[in-house]
Every structure is written in C-alpha cells, then in structure tokens.
Design a protein around this nucleic acid. Structure first.
Length: 463
RNA sequence: UCCUCGAUAGCUCAAUGGUAGAGCAUGCGGCUGUUAACCGCAGGGUUGUAGGUUCGAGUCCUACUCGGGGAGCCA
C-alpha cells in the first residue's frame, strides 16, 4: 500500500513538511468554489483529518469538485504549512485519484446525527467523529488491559465460550444446540432428550469464565480472562447488552484486600494509559460528550478510592438527608438509587462496598468470621454504577459444599470446582470488570449500545 | 417485564382542532483561502400502523409496532 498514514503526519509532521506524499482516505467534508476547493480527508488511523487543497492544477478538477462526502481518494501532493488557523499543515494536491465514489444518498450528513439514528446505520457510524473516537479508545483500552496484566506477571487464559453447566446462576443463558426444533428427540418424561444433542448434554453460552479461571489460577498463580460473555436477560437499559466482553483476573494466595488493591491499580493504570495515548479522542469527548470528563478521570487516577463495608453503607444511607424510593435496610441489596447516592453524592468518586450479607451473594464467596457476611466487593463509579464485582473465594471445602447445598445447587455438578480445594487449595480472590462499562466510564458515553460495534440487545441482532 | 416520554421530508426539528414549514443533505447555477464555508433557484411528504371522535385531525381518543429515558436483573 502506497502512502503514509495521517497518524504519522501528526506525530512526525516536521519529517514530511515540504515533501511529496500520498494519502489514502475518505472525504469527511468538501467545500468548493469556482477554481479551487478544500477536502477534509480522514484515513481512520487518526482522529484528526488532513485538509487537502486542490485547484485546476489537477487534471480532473470538475470531477473532484462534484464528489460527495464518503468518497474514497488517493491524493498525491506536497505537505505545506497552512495559512488557515484550524490546522497546522495541509496537503497541496497535485494528483487526486478517485478510488471509490460515494452516492448522493450517503446517509451521513455534515451536521450532527442522533445516536439513535446512527445505531440504525451501525455499518457506517464508525465514520463519524464520535464513533471513530469511541472505537479507537476501545482498541487502545483492550491493549492496555493486556499490557497491565502481562507486565504484572499474569497469564492470559481462554476460558470456554460454550459451557456445560449452569455455573453460577449468574443470569439467563443462551442455549447451544444442533437439535432440530421441529423434530427434537424426547425422553421417557416427554421432555427434550439432550443426550442426543451435539455434546450429549445441555450446553449454553458462558455467563462467566470465573470457575474455569480459578482452575488456572491454582496452576499459574495470577491469571486473567478477557473475552465475550453472554446473558439472555430481558433487560432493557443503557448499561446491559446480551453480548459483552468481560475481564476476570484471579489471584492466588490473596484475600479481598489484595483483590481491591489490584482492581484500584488496574483502573488507575487503564485511565492513565488512555489519557496518555488517546489525547485527541479524549479532548473530543471532553468537549462534546462531557465537559468534566478529563478532570474527573485525572482525579480518579490520582486519588485513593473509598472503601466502606455494606453495613457502614447502610448506616450512611440511613443518615442521609434523602428520600429513597426503596427502603434502606440491612439484608436488602443496595438499589441503583442507593449506589448512585453513595458514589455520586457522598463520596463523589469510585467506592468499594464490601462484606455483603451472604444471602444476597453467590455461593462461592468466602464466608466471614461473623457467619453473616461474605468477603465480596463491588466497585461503584459515578455515572455508570457498578463497574466491578468481585470477591475472595471460599477455599474451605466443607464450607463450600455447605453453601452449594444451601443455595439449592447440586454438589455433583461442581465436583471439579471442589477438587481445586482438595488438591493444594489456597486462599484466592478475583473480580469481573465489564469492559463496555469501563469504556463508558472513560469516554462519557451514556449508552452501552454506543460502545459496541454491532450491539446485541433484546430484539436487536441486526448486522 | 413494569413505569414514562416520543414517532412529521434522506437527517435534525417546527406547525392554537382550520391550506404541512425551516435548516442541513441532494440537483443546477454563482463565488480566488474555506473551516458544520457562503449566496441564488429547484425537487423532495399517505405526518409509524389500524381504527374512532369531529363539518374538519400532524394535533383529541383506543389498540398495536418501533425507539428514548427510568426501574428490576447485573458486568
């Protein structure tokens, strides 16, 4: 591929100034007059465009002047300093090759579109400023996640996408089957006979890689997963998707305090990495999405997260001068309005809430000395709510068995999970970070559908 | 699933129960440094769907469809 990338141009402008270069890209806007015109060309490698100036020196001026937004071009010319104020340099075209025209009905106009409309053209929306920035940040963040863990001695584990057990009961699951719905085999009870199915048993898409992650944690000490996760919940909110990506680290020889330290260090690293490596994009979000974004993120990066126990949180909420729709009572789970009040009004920054009543948490969480609470933690952040959920895991085999039974689950199903406690089990802990929620928090985007390229939600799997 | 708000030109939005408009986009023309360029002209509508009230419905009523926001569930 001939040509240089716009990202290179902006990073090493001096090297190219007053030299002949070729840029390949797409027209973002075009303005023409009788004998000359301007094109803002974007090549996708950088948030900013390059301004192309063209006149009758090129041999196809009339054709170029009539081009529509979206057309693909290959422009050869000299990079010169720009007399205009909005760009440091521009490309003086000597030859413009029309690579692919864009038809007049191109659905993206120069003015702003609503996010709702852009969702209906998800195949074209990455060409807009906002989505160009969102998905570049998503890529940079994914890289930062790997860097953080790889540099800290973690091993990346690919846990299965198709799972054979209804592991944690973390939510409704999508069934995976090759059975013919119109002619499914049935057993003696008249139910569908899954022993005839592809895997010889009922299988689903994973809702969490945690249990398998724990197995590798007991071999590699520090592991993380980073992959797609599926929930078939009929939830219709700006924070839920049926298919999303989750990051789940698991650390051996570690307790809940270590778990929170890891979570805090990771969030701070990721924020710092994005501020450092996506400056143009972050400036854009700060200008057009949320004017307090960068200030808030810097504050989060540079100050300690709060830590309160569930019991303390209940007291704080009871003392608060605020009428809640749902009652604040020890034993009840915190409602969204309670979580928001804690992180947005009381602390105004990220806060870990720890040690929840065992009745409202999962079976694998470690029982505390008081026999009433478990070593769990949720990290709440302003604007998004719960971004991380984690816990120290129950490493005592008898207690774990007891909890499985109490929760109405089958001990037999978890034989291999219990084995991990039998053969050199250690105290260990981990958490799950919703990748999209992290992106929302970092970019200020308010809807999870706008941080996933082709979002899957209830009633929506277009594209 | 529940509550609530909405659906008018390709897009973003106006229109007291009384002849459906604007900006942008598109087409044509003008313009020698533009910056969501500017100026002129033109085309573009079964007002989400189906009923109802009314002399008359974009506007009022009912149902449905789709979407936004909030809640539950969670990451």
């Amino acid at each position: 591929m001939d040509g240089i990338l716009i990202k290179q141009l902006y990073r090493q402008a001096q090297e190219f100034l007053n030299k002949k270069i070729i840029i390949n890209g797409w027209i973002r806007t075009i303005r023409t007059s009788k004998n000359f015109g301007f094109i803002e060309l974007n090549d996708g490698t950088h948030f900013k465009n390059i301004q192309v100036v063209f006149d009758e020196l090129i041999d196809n001026y009339p054709e170029v002047a009539k081009l529509n937004v979206g057309s693909a071009l290959s422009v050869a010319g000299e990079l010169v300093e720009s007399p205009g104020e909005k760009q440091p340099f521009e490309l003086k075209a000597e030859n413009i090759k029309i690579v692919g025209i864009s038809h007049p009905e191109y659905p993206l106009q120069k003015k702003r579109h609503s996010f709702e409309y852009l969702r209906s053209i998800a195949h074209l929306r990455p060409r807009t400023n906002t989505f160009s920035a969102v998905f570049r940040v998503r890529s940079i963040l994914a890289y930062a996640v790997h860097r953080f863990f790889q540099e800290n001695g973690f091993t990346y584990v690919h846990t299965p996408i198709i799972t054979g057990s209804d592991a944690e009961g973390a939510g409704e699951m999508f069934r995976v089957t090759t059975l013919d719905f119109d002619n499914a085999p049935s057993n003696e009870q008249g139910k569908i006979d899954f022993s005839k199915d592809f895997f010889g048993k009922e299988t689903n898409l994973t809702v969490s890689g945690q249990l398998e992650g724990e197995a590798y944690c007991m071999a590699f000490n520090r592991i993380y997963t980073f992959g797609p996760t599926f929930r078939a919940e009929n939830s219709n909110t700006a924070r839920h998707a049926a298919e999303f990506w989750m990051i789940e680290p698991e650390i051996a020889f570690s307790d809940l305090q270590d778990d929170m330290e890891l979570a805090e260090e990771m969030i701070k690293y990721l924020i710092g990495y994005v501020l450092e490596n996506a400056q143009e994009e972050m400036d854009f979000f700060n200008s057009f999405i949320d004017k307090s974004l960068i200030g808030r993120l810097k504050n989060v990066r540079d100050s300690a997260f709060e830590r309160v126990t569930y019991t303390e949180a209940i007291e704080l909420l009871n003392d608060a001068d605020e009428q809640f729709t749902y009652p604040v009572k020890w034993g009840n789970d915190l409602q969204t309005e309670h979580e928001r009040y804690l992180t947005e009004k009381i602390f105004k920054k990220p806060v870990f809430v720890t040690d929840y009543p065992k009745e409202i948490k999962a079976f694998y969480m470690r029982l505390n000395e008081d026999n009433k609470t478990v070593a769990a933690m949720d990290l709440l952040v302003p604007g998004v709510g719960e971004i991380i959920g984690g816990s120290q895991r129950e490493e005592r085999e008898e207690l774990l068995q007891k909890r499985i039974t109490e929760m109405g689950l089958s001990v037999d199903e978890y034989w291999w999970y219990l084995d991990l406690r039998k053969y050199g089990g250690t105290k260990h802990a981990g958490f799950g970070l919703g990748f999209e929620r992290l992106i929302m928090y970092v970019t200020g985007m308010a809807n999870i559908r706008d941080v996933i390229p082709f979002p899957r939600t209830v009633n929506n799997a277009e594209f």
